[in-house]
Write a protein that binds this DNA or RNA. Structure first.
Length: 218
DNA sequence: CCATTGATCGTCT
DNA sequence: GACGATCAATGGT
């Protein structure tokens, strides 16, 4: 059941958007609740925090684009665990991407964190993202967001819902339903028609859309 | 602004 | 052995 996302008045109290039981529910509802949330990461060099402006839902056995679609492997094991943990994976031989694990324990789903605005530790974020031309580019795109926050393999599996955790989620600035937009996921070929990408309208930290590439013919 | 392309390697078939 | 939930550089309009 997926209905309530983006429907006017349908999301319930804003304070409940990031409750653990919400993350454990339908993945699109969890994704909706993550918009406007703050992800804050401590490191020896300092703390960087990002307000999330763009996310994508990936849901278990019904979603052919999900890393968990073909069952559990060493890489996607965290997705099969309880909600509220970080799933970090390596792509294209050089980039890291971060997800928040959602859904009930044993039913793998996750929300990819695709974009956000750096709201704390901006100097540290700039030093990690030296090629960024402007501050809105610091965490605009999933691999950029991971880099700005200093997240890579060691962060895989981290628990996010404890305020004392070095990697933690906070409620941040909840986004009104009227500002939520939906569309197809970026760069996804399988199930490309599913509008499981959610973003904040008119936010410059939302990444550019790119259609999924179909397999080229031989 | 837009389109194209090389980089680079873990993961799964 | 092929491909990917990407990025940055390049070159054109």
């Amino acid at each position: 059941m997926v209905g309530r996302v983006g429907a006017d008045g349908g999301v319930g109290p804003l304070s409940a958007l990031l409750e653990p039981e919400r993350l454990a529910g339908p993945v699109l509802d969890a994704a909706r609740g993550l918009l406007g949330a703050v992800l804050e990461v401590d490191s020896p060099q300092g703390t960087v925090a990002v307000t999330l402006s763009e996310v994508e839902a990936y849901g278990g056995p019904v979603d052919p684009a999900s890393h968990a679609f073909r069952g559990r492997t060493p890489r996607n094991a965290v997705m099969f665990g309880p909600a509220g943990h970080l799933y970090v994976y390596f792509v294209y031989g050089m980039h890291w991407c971060c997800n928040v694990v959602c859904g009930p324990d044993g039913q793998a789903s996750a929300v990819l964190l695709r974009g956000g605005r750096v709201v704390d530790g901006i100097e540290l974020a700039r030093s990690r993202r030296s090629t960024a031309r402007t501050d809105v580019d610091l965490a605009r795109g999933p691999a950029r967001l991971a880099t700005a926050l200093g997240l890579a393999a060691p962060a895989n599996g981290a628990y996010l819902l404890d305020p004392a955790s070095p990697i933690r989620l906070g409620v941040g600035s909840p986004v009104a339903d009227s500002a939520v937009r939906r569309g197809p996921r970026v760069g996804v070929a399988a199930a490309g028609e599913l509008p499981w990408r959610l973003w904040v309208a008119d936010d410059p930290t939302v990444s550019a859309y790119r259609a999924g590439t179909r397999r080229r013919r031989t």
